[in-house]
């Protein structure tokens, strides 16, 4: 039985490295289009890794067609790459549609911050009540004072995680 040599080819290894590093750089961007490009690049890098995992190229993997003594390529790696290409196609289409929708709605395709999360963080910083207290409706004065203080905290501190007075009280 002829065994395929499976030392990886250096060119492919370098190509995987380049594709993945460029892709990761793009994935860290805020714009969905760039994220998509990053996804496609890393995806191709991973596909090449699969190809590398299958060993070196040989003749076509069909029994009876390979000349005697010549090893056949590993067909499983290629089947897996094919599947993952198809999946990547579908996912890319979805991300493109989402980026376009985001552009339609906001005029850009950047991933926005979670507003609710920011609000909670600011509340935590200010240590303020997060609701209108129905029981304390009569004592307007204290609520007002508190609200004013909170306002000052936010204006002065500005930092969502600033503990300062809020924590001390």
């Amino acid at each position: 039985m002829v065994v395929l040599e499976n030392t990886p080819s250096a060119v492919l290894v370098v190509a995987v490295g380049v594709l993945v590093s460029v892709g990761v750089y793009l994935l860290l961007e805020r714009s969905l289009t760039r994220v998509l490009l990053g996804f496609v690049l890393v995806g191709n890098g991973v596909n090449l890794t699969l190809l590398l995992a299958g060993g070196r190229a040989g003749s076509a993997p069909i029994i009876g067609t390979a000349p005697d003594g010549e090893p056949m390529s590993d067909p499983l790696a290629q089947a897996m790459i094919l599947t993952s290409i198809v999946i990547a196609l579908a996912l890319s289409a979805f991300v493109l549609a989402m980026a376009y929708r985001s552009f339609q709605l906001g005029g850009h395709d950047e991933v926005a911050d979670d507003v609710e999360d920011r609000r909670i963080a600011r509340l935590a910083a200010a240590n303020a009540p997060a609701y209108t207290d129905l029981d304390a409706e009569g004592s307007d004065q204290t609520l007002d004072e508190e609200a004013a203080e909170v306002h000052d905290d936010v204006e002065a501190g500005g930092q969502p995680d600033g503990s300062g007075e809020g924590g001390a009280r």
């Binding site: 994220v35 890393v42 995806g43 699969l50 499983l76 991300v95 989402m98 985001s102 709605l105 979670d114």
Partner: peptide
């Protein structure tokens, strides 16, 4: 769409990690 973007990007990254793990296991 805003919430979905976060979810989609994170999921894509985890899929890529999983796929490379499969490749390396192979």
């Amino acid at each position: 769409i805003r919430a979905g973007s976060v979810y989609v990007v994170v999921s894509l990254v985890s899929s890529l990690l999983f796929l490379s793990a499969v490749a390396l296991v192979y």
